[in-house]
Amino acid sequence: TKVFYNGTYVEFNNPEKAKKYAEKVAKKVGGTFTEKNGQFHVE
């Protein structure tokens, strides 16, 4: 499961961990995250 952010991504074996990371990054940058095709995108 990949989490895309700012033109790069971090890959996780565990979708649950990926979601938590996406939430954390989104919170940090004051943005939101969306799930597309089983991957997370932070905006």
Rank of each mutant, 00 (worst) to 15 (best):
K27N: 10
A26S: 07
G30R: 08
V29T: 10
V42I: 14
N13Y: 09
E43H: 14
F4M: 04
K2F: 10
F33G: 01
P15I: 12
G31K: 04
N6E: 07
N6F: 09
N13L: 11
V3N: 00
G7Y: 06
E35Q: 09
V3P: 00
Q39S: 13
K19N: 03
Y5T: 04
V3L: 02
T34W: 12
F33K: 03
K27W: 08
T34Y: 15
P15Y: 15
G31Q: 04
E23F: 08
V10E: 05
G30T: 04
E16S: 10
F12M: 03
G38N: 06
F40H: 02
E43N: 11
K27S: 09
K28R: 14
V25W: 13
E35S: 07
E16H: 11
Y5P: 00
Y21M: 03
G7K: 06
F12N: 00
Y21T: 01
N6D: 08
E16Y: 10
K28E: 14
G31Y: 04
E23L: 09
G7P: 00
K19W: 07
E43L: 14
A22E: 00
E23R: 09
K28C: 15
T1R: 05
G30C: 15
T1F: 15
N6W: 07
F33S: 06
Q39Y: 09
A22W: 02
T32P: 02
K24E: 15
N37Q: 08
N6T: 04
N37S: 07
E35M: 11
F4R: 03
T8D: 07
E23Q: 12
G38P: 00
H41Q: 06
F4G: 00
F12Q: 00
A18T: 01
G30I: 03
K36G: 04
Y9S: 08
V25D: 00
N37G: 09
G31L: 06
T1Q: 05
F4P: 00
F12P: 00
K36W: 09
T34D: 04
F33Q: 03
E43V: 14
T1K: 05
F40P: 01
T8K: 13
V3K: 00
K24H: 13
K28S: 13
K24T: 12
V25E: 05
E43C: 15
E35I: 12
F12W: 03
A18I: 00
K19V: 05
K24M: 15
K20Y: 09
V25P: 01
A26F: 03
F33P: 04
G7D: 07
E16M: 11
K2S: 05
N14K: 07
P15W: 15
F33D: 00
V10N: 04
F33M: 11
P15T: 09
H41E: 06
H41G: 02
T32K: 10
T1C: 15
K27H: 10
F12V: 02
G38E: 04
E11P: 05
K2L: 09
A26P: 01
G7C: 14
A18W: 02
N13H: 10
K2R: 13
E43A: 10
E16W: 10
G7F: 06
